[in-house]
């Protein structure tokens, strides 16, 4: 239920733990801990509550503590043939993945992870609980603070509880590879789940019923493989999808790009990306309003 005043006891306890005074950071699975820099020393570390609090298979929604690991979430959902396609490490937490805001490898089909979020309850800088969004699969009630929280690296509050939209696990999911033109694959296949490219070889994930997966795969000279290649983990950059062809031509390091999406996984960190002065001033203003005493993840930066 989602009425004012009706909040899970674990969220209330988490709000007490977060308090209203000292510098604080929420630790998840530490799988993407370095993104945005680490918090200043002296920052108190807390963990968000964990556990799946309700899963209603026929509603295709799940409500859980932000400290729940993706492994635990997947295990619960898989029992009912469902998933949340975050595609990150099993020990990563739901709150951590959303705070960083990086989507997984199947974004081409499933979209950005922020579009899977229905409701977030977070503890704000003053130790108070804030609810945004709503528990149903569709909702436009009030300002969309959920989207603002995704990718905010905990600078706007400590995520305590999340309600997510679930999707059915496809009947068949296969990976294929070949030395092929990834852009032609992108244009000819109907909504593949992922197209990865290292400048030479392509890996494609196709999901659906068996006959469709096989028919799509037969359009190219593919070889079936167990899964995606291992990705360089030094950096993650983003470019416009159409710029991938030229962007990566002269890069001598190893890289793997997500074709149609524009993410490039590389060995070196990408350059800092500039934010125009107007947007920067709006974002700075939001930071000041939502964390006036700079106690939320001090030292960690969204605005580099």
């Amino acid at each position: 239920m989602n009425r004012p005043g009706e909040v899970d006891q674990k969220v209330v306890e988490f709000a007490e733990l977060v308090g209203a005074v000292d510098p604080i950071t929420v630790v998840g699975g530490r799988t993407q801990w370095a993104v945005g820099g680490t918090p200043e020393s002296g920052t108190r570390e807390v963990q968000a509550p964990a556990g799946i609090w309700s899963h209603e298979p026929e509603e295709m929604t799940v409500r859980c503590g932000a400290g729940t690991t993706l492994g635990e979430l997947s295990e619960q959902l898989a029992r009912y043939g469902q998933m949340v396609p975050f595609d990150m490490a099993a020990e990563a937490t739901v709150g951590g993945v959303l705070s960083v805001g990086h989507s997984g490898l199947r974004r081409l089909k499933y979209g950005h992870i922020r579009d899977l979020v229905l409701q977030i309850r977070h503890v704000d800088h003053s130790g108070q609980i804030v609810s945004s969004g709503g528990p149903t699969v569709k909702n436009v009630s009030g300002y969309d603070l959920c989207r603002l929280m995704v990718g905010s690296l905990g600078k706007f509050g400590c995520i305590a509880e999340v309600t997510l939209r679930c999707l059915p696990i496809p009947a068949v999911a296969k990976w294929f590879t070949g030395v092929l033109d990834p852009f032609e694959i992108f244009n000819r296949l109907y909504r593949p789940s992922a197209i990865l490219w290292d400048g030479n070889r392509v890996w494609v994930c196709i999901e659906g019923v068996e006959s469709d997966v096989n028919a799509q795969a037969s359009l190219f000279d593919f070889e079936e493989v167990a899964g995606p290649p291992s990705l360089p983990s030094g950096g993650r950059l983003g470019v416009e999808p159409k710029d991938l062809r030229t962007y990566t031509q002269n890069d001598e390091d190893k890289w793997v790009a997500e074709v149609g999406v524009g993410v490039v996984h590389s060995e070196r960190p990408g350059p800092d990306r500039s934010i125009n002065a107007v947007n920067r001033s709006l974002m700075k203003d939001l930071e000041k309003r939502l964390d006036p005493n700079n106690r939320l993840n001090p030292g960690r930066q969204v605005l580099v």
């Binding site: 805001g101 990086h102 989507s103 974004r107 950005h112 922020r114 436009v140 300002y143 969309d144 603070l145 989207r147 603002l148 995704v150 990718g151 905010s152 983003g238 470019v239 416009e240 999808p241 997500e258 999406v261 524009g262 993410v263 990306r273 500039s274 934010i275 125009n276 107007v278 947007n279 920067r280 709006l282 974002m283 939001l286 969204v302 605005l303 580099v304």
Partner: peptide, 21 residues
């Protein structure tokens, strides 16, 4: 100004998502 961009993760906070709706 322009909120969001055509790259997969526009830098900074998601003002685009806040503005829509």
């Amino acid at each position: 100004t322009i909120l969001g961009d055509l790259t997969p993760d526009s830098p900074g906070y998601d003002l685009r998502g806040l503005f829509i709706g």
